[in-house]
């Protein structure tokens, strides 16, 4: 029991994050709960606009306080993060929780040498001298696979390739050996070969530091490569949660199944790809009662849908926010 408690890094319960749009608040994250454990890579997957980034930024408290509202609970090792002020958050960000972003060029300050951007993270969380910080930064650069750490330390971001920049971002995120790393689409902007290298690097770092990673992506292939657990997100809700095998081998929610179905397969040339009708609705037009995915599977009769779907446990640690999952079929099946 204590062991289990020791393993829990992050506990999110009934998280609601709302944005102000034209004076009204709309939930972009709508009642999400998840638990991140040590040594675990937790993938959040879903189309763009589903609220993945909002979930990530809520955890690290990087939302604009004037135009957003966070409700619910986010506990880091028992400490409540919701409601912390900026100073309190600054102690946790960078030290206990590191963050990696999607676009590695815009995420670095163009006017600052990359070395200084790495040591800056150490400056606020360690008592190291300048020389020690530099030594650590060089070690980090080496650790993330930068061929010429000394030279790179003095470079500016624009002088590096996309893959190298992402390695810099990673070295910043892990500079203080945080227990949790939150990576928001860290490979989306990269070429496949670089993506593969970054995935390997993140896996290695995770093992080495026994950290937990929340890995956000819209690419199911990447999920299959990296995740231990998966949360499938649709319209602000986690519609299915399970182990990576549950999700890929026994998907339950119509959304998960639709997503898996639309991957181009090796099959015949010119096969038609499966299309999910419609799109993720903008916040202000999102249905707030009943199933949010129902409009995108219009061939399922209204009577098959649940009034207000609740989580059903379908296996060990496998949950689905849906009832008609047992009778769901694709349009072309019948």
């Amino acid at each position: 029991m204590d062991k289990e408690k020791d393993n829990v890094l992050l506990e999110i319960e009934h998280l609601h994050t709302a944005f102000r749009i034209n004076g009204k608040f709309y939930n972009a994250v709508d009642d999400c709960s998840l638990t991140l454990r040590k040594n675990e890579i937790y993938a959040i997957v879903g189309e763009s606009g589903c609220g993945k980034s909002t979930l990530a930024t809520s955890i690290v408290g990087l939302l604009d306080p004037l135009n957003s509202k966070v409700k619910g609970s986010i506990k880091y090792r028992g400490q409540e993060l919701v409601g912390l002020n900026a100073d309190e958050y600054d102690k946790i960000r960078g030290e206990d929780i590191g963050m990696i972003f999607q676009d590695p060029l815009s995420a670095l300050n163009p006017l600052m040498r990359v070395g200084d951007q790495i040591t800056e993270a150490l400056y606020y969380h360690t008592k190291d001298s300048e020389a020690e910080r530099k030594k650590k930064a060089l070690e980090l650069l080496k650790r993330v696979g930068i061929p010429d750490p000394e030279g790179t330390f003095r470079r500016y971001p624009h002088e590096l390739s996309g893959g190298m920049r992402q390695r810099i971002i990673i070295s910043i995120a892990v500079a203080c050996s945080p227990e949790i790393i939150i990576a928001d689409e860290p490979t989306t902007a990269l070429d496949v070969t670089i993506q593969a290298q970054i995935i390997d690097l993140l896996k290695d770092i995770q093992k080495e530091k026994e950290s937990g990673i929340i890995f956000i992506t819209h690419d199911l292939g990447v999920v299959a490569e990296i995740a231990d657990r998966v949360g499938v997100m649709y319209a602000g809700q986690l519609v299915e949660i399970g182990s990576v095998f549950d999700i890929f081998e026994d998907p339950k929610h119509p959304y998960t199944r639709s997503l898996l179905n639309s991957i181009p397969q090796a099959g015949e040339l010119g096969d038609r790809l499966h299309v999910i009708q419609g799109n993720v609705p903008p916040l202000s037009e999102m249905k707030r009662s009943g199933c949010r995915f129902a409009p995108r599977i219009p061939w399922i009769p209204a009577s098959a849908h649940e009034e207000n779907p609740s989580y059903h446990q379908v296996g060990d640690g496998h949950y689905v926010l849906c009832t008609c999952y047992q009778t769901f079929h694709f349009q072309e099946e019948k």
Binding site: T193, Q195, A196, G221, A224, F245, F248, L260
Partner: peptide
């Protein structure tokens, strides 16, 4: 070969072998 090896496989059970082959 390198490009092909880098494509993520959507079968999570092939993960280890894929990584090995890629490396």
């Amino acid at each position: 070969k390198r490009l092909l090896a880098a494509i993520p496989d959507i079968n999570p059970r092939n993960r280890q072998e894929d990584t090995k082959e890629r490396l």
